[in-house]
Structures are given as structure tokens and as C-alpha cells.
Amino acid sequence: MVKLFPVVALLLLGTAHATDADDLAAALKQARQWTARGQVEVSVFFPPRTTPTRAANALPAVPFRPALLARNFTVTRGDSEAIAGRLSTRFDLTPRQGAAARWSLWIDRVWNVPLAFEERMPDGTLARRAAFLKVNGTLARVPVQPLPSGTGLGTVLKSALPGLRLPAGFTPVAARARAEGQGGTEITLSDGVNVLALIVAPRNVRPAVGVASVRVQGRGGVRFVWLVGNLPESALKTALANVRQVDEAGLGTFAEPADSNR
């Protein structure tokens, strides 16, 4: 009996973690159909902008992908806290590997929908925050917006950009052609919560916080690959360090399949 205790304790511990992740997944599923309304303060410090804080009447959208989130993040239930006078539970999302941003979500204890989001950089600096200041008495229905999963895009991206080393946990989920006049392709990478923008463009971009680029050889001449996101500069540069050429033909013909995370 004594020997079985550690095993039982581990099972209980594992069950507790799974429960936290399942509870969060249920809340995120609920949030795809229902949302709270009221007065929201939205602050964005990355990407930088002249006026980081503004007001809104609903929380901004976060493209959660539950399958990737469960794979890449440890979900931990935190304390109960009040958001806009409503009791909520905080869930902390910590990346299992790599230097991705960490998140906290406050879920209403009754409605089971988010009342606040917070994204922090690996060093703890606040990157984004959105939280209700006042909440209306009832939930509002939201139209269902399917997210592309990018199934098969990983293989295409690997052949299109040989040498690309995707940051830990990130996988391509969407690709689209850039606007006419700009030229090139935009690929969205996701780890379940955070996103990175991978751009193949005919022109280079100036280096900045969260922006790295590399010059490569394309079929039509010189091209540039940008990687943009909330990652340390070293992680962004490492991802592009071995990229020497690009073949956009495969990316251009990529057809987005249905979202498998739904």
C-alpha cells in the first residue's frame, strides 16, 4: 500500500493538470459562441504603437488553437480574482519549451468565458493586455469564424524554404499571397496562442524589435524573408540563419484545408 502511494499521487497530479487544461479548453470552446460585452481597456506594447491603450466594448480576438495549446503549454489554474466585479479564475499558460510569450486568462466562474487576457514576454514584460472594466448583464452571441489549421502547410514550407528552423512549438497554420503591388507571401505560424508572421517579399525590411530578415535567392531573383513576432532577437535570427533560397511556387498554390482544431 505504501509503495502504491507515489503512483497514486502522480496519477492524481496528472489528473489535476489535465483538468486545468480541459477546463480552459471548455472555456475557450464556449467563447467561440458567446462573449461578454461592456467596457474593455486594450493595451498593446508589442507591436509598438504611438497610443498603446484604447477602449473597446469587447475583448479582442485571440486565435487559440486548442490542439497546439495543449501540446506546447502547461496550463495551471491560478487564484480566483475579480474582473469588473465578477468572480473569475486565472489560468496561466507557460510554454513547455523555447522562449515564447506566456499568457494568463481570466475566465468568468459563471459564464465560463474570458474576461481578461494578458501576454507577457519571456522576461516578464507586458506585451498585450485586455480586460473588462465594466461588464453588461448578459452574454452576446458571436458568429463562428473558423480558423485555418494549415494541415500540409508544414511540408510545403519545408520544401519552399529549406534551412528554415521553426521556433520551438510553432507550426505554420495559414498562408496567403500578399497584396498586389507588394508581392510575396505571408505565412502565419502559431504555437496555439502566440503567432509569428513569416513573410517572403521582394523588398527587405529594416531591423527592429521583434523583426528579423534575411536575403535569399528566389527563382525570379533576390528575395527577402522576414520573421516578425514576440520572440527574442536571437530566436528570430536563429530561425532564419540557414535559409539561403526560396521557392514560392509551392506556397502560392497552397490551398487551405478545413480547420482540424474545431
Binding site: 486594450v42 507591436p47 480576438a61 486565435p63 485586455a130 521582394p202 525590411v205 529594416r206 516578425v228
Partner: peptide
């Protein structure tokens, strides 16, 4: 062609973040 400003990269990232940010 001159290098584009960093705002061009941030604009693409902004689109990927989701609506409302």
C-alpha cells in the same frame, strides 16, 4: 528599392494577431 520601415512588418504581424488588438 530601399528597405521598408519596420511598420510594414508590424502590420503583417498585427493582421495575424486577430481582430480588435
Amino acid at each position: 528599392p530601399a528597405d521598408l520601415p519596420a511598420s510594414a512588418a508590424y502590420a503583417v504581424y498585427q493582421d495575424a494577431l486577430g481582430e480588435g488588438w
